[in-house]
Design a protein around this nucleic acid. Structure first.
Lengths: 316, 316
DNA sequence: AAGAATTCATACCATGATGGTATATAGGGA
DNA sequence: TCCCTATATACCATCATGGTATGAATTCTT
């Protein structure tokens, strides 16, 4: 015989509140309604749930035991309600995020950590990739969002792109590198050092080549390539190699005092680092909250970087 | 926003069974019915519970979390069902039982223990009393049943009485008592020993006086009175006192080899020990089961006592 | 790659549970 | 004993639920 959980919850509330009328009020129902519910339940069970003819309506032993189960069901129902609220209000959720390695490690991972603090219910599932694989995963719904550099004319028609920050690159090296001590930098000086490169299939690698070409150097050599940001960073710190990285990444690494950027103008691609999502699909509240958060953080970051640049210019 | 626990259970079952069709089958509903339930739930929550456009209907992160709560609710509901079954089938329940002390301690308590083994869900709440107090408690619904000696003409009109066993009394003493060694017993011999009596307000006390009178003794004295069966038993074992007890009580104590009955005919009141319940009120299944059990046990006991008597007579 | 098969969604109807208002009835207290 | 409050009943409206028939979409198969 199937019992209706709702009925058990009503029973629990009546026992809890110590009366039919009060229970009805707590449930937001009319007194006759709950009265009949209990009456029907008793009829179905074939046993009284309340002592008959007692004014403050005392539960039977049986009624009390059932009501305890009802109370637990009620608590679970409440739990489900708050869970649903957390999800629909964007306090909880699951976000599958993919992005280009360097930028993810160097910038986004910090923001993920910050976001985690304000939305404890969030759960990130991060992966790395470049344009093609990210787009594929996004379309296959294996990702909820992708973070990657993108030119305006590159944006797929079935996707929305929200720019976060310009894709400006800089040449970076360890703090205390010979290059940092001199004033104007000549081509020969740069040519004296070898380079650290990101994986050859990454857009950053193409940027690197473009950047080096743009400053006039033609015969450059790699000492290290293929590593993640952590490897690149470790390598840079311990050698006199140079590399090309997004300025935002270098900016955030500057805090540790180990990596600096060189004041050399490099050609920066007209791409922006941003968020790619499937078009025409409602973003989950959590995702919406998160993207908004990212936009705010990046705006803030850009502002700080601009400040820094102004100061540097003033000093120069 | 109130969620329907039923909906959560349906969700849980679908996730559990891995498909809408199978879930519907497990729930004993039609597929369109549960389909619509889920659809409505998603509409109400404003978030998808299942990944759209996936054929083996995969739950969302959100859907899975909700379904886990639903599963727990489902489990509780099942628990409530078995609880209700146990109560309605008489496998569980609460019995408030009152009775006269000696018979309760000497006979009924054994049967309570035996019953407990076969119906683990039972819960006894025992108390002691005599006719007036027992009847009062019964009428006030502070007791579900009373066990006491009763004459046919004494039965209150608002009560049902089910006899269990005749109220025959015997004179009891310790095993090895001088009286047990002799053949025929004379009045002088009995008069030599003092008596142990139950509480003065008990019917057994009146029986005691009647019994002693019936065997011709007139000047009897009490050495001990007012105790429960345990006290009486302890006292009897360590002294040469005599007492009057229901034969059933003595019979069950004989097993321990410390108390025996004397082969003296005493006037036995035409009362029967039995069960008193309120008339015109449906007995709970548990109570019904229990009373049936008591009747069986007492019938069995009576049979064994009759056997014993036949053997004794044959020996004499 | 197209058709078959399966799985899910929708439309429509019937019914029965639920909820409400009005009202009767029953305990409990003065 | 009477009154007050708490509970039960009667009656009605409605909406959620459940079912059958059917359409749509996706996966499997060939």
């Amino acid at each position: 015989m199937k019992l209706d959980s709702e009925h058990l919850e009503i029973l629990a509330m009546i026992v809890e509140k110590g009366g039919l009328t009060e229970g009805a009020e707590a449930l937001g129902k009319s007194q006759p309604s709950v009265s009949r519910t209990i009456s029907n339940l008793e009829k179905r069970l074939g046993m009284p749930l309340f002592e008959p003819g007692r004014r403050p309506l005392q539960p039977t032993h049986f009624g009390r035991m059932l009501s305890e189960i009802g109370m637990r069901i009620y608590a679970l129902n409440r739990e489900a309600q708050t869970l649903a609220q957390n999800f629909t209000k964007g306090y909880a959720g699951h976000i599958r995020i993919g992005g280009t390695p360097i930028f993810m490690d160097g910038v986004i991972s910090h923001m993920l950590a910050d976001f985690q603090e304000r939305a404890e219910g969030v759960q990130f599932d991060q992966s790395y990739g470049y344009f093609d694989s990210l787009l594929g995963k996004l379309r296959n719904k294996m990702l909820d969002m992708a973070i990657l550099p993108m030119r305006e004319d590159q944006i797929p028609v079935d996707c929305d792109f929200r720019p976060l920050i310009p894709g400006r690159n800089v040449i970076a090296c360890r703090a205390g590198h010979p290059m940092t001590r001199k004033g104007p930098i000549t081509l020969q000086e740069i040519d004296a050092y070898s380079w650290v490169a990101p994986p050859a299939d990454s857009p950053l690698f193409r940027d690197l080549k473009g950047a080096i070409t743009s400053i006039g150097s033609e015969n450059f050599r790699f000492t290290f390539s293929g590593g993640t940001l952590a490897s690149i960073q470790s390598f840079l710190i311990r050698t006199d190699c140079l590399t090309v990285l997004p300025y935002s990444v270098v900016y955030l690494m500057k805090g540790a005092g180990q990596i600096v950027s060189l004041p050399i103008k490099v050609a920066h691609p007209d791409r922006k680092l941003g968020v790619l999502t499937r078009k025409g699909e409602a973003l989950s509240p959590m995702l919406k909250t998160f993207i908004t958060f990212l936009e705010g953080q990046c705006e803030n970051l850009e502002c700080r970087m601009a400040n820094e640049a102004r100061i540097a210019k003033g000093r120069a």
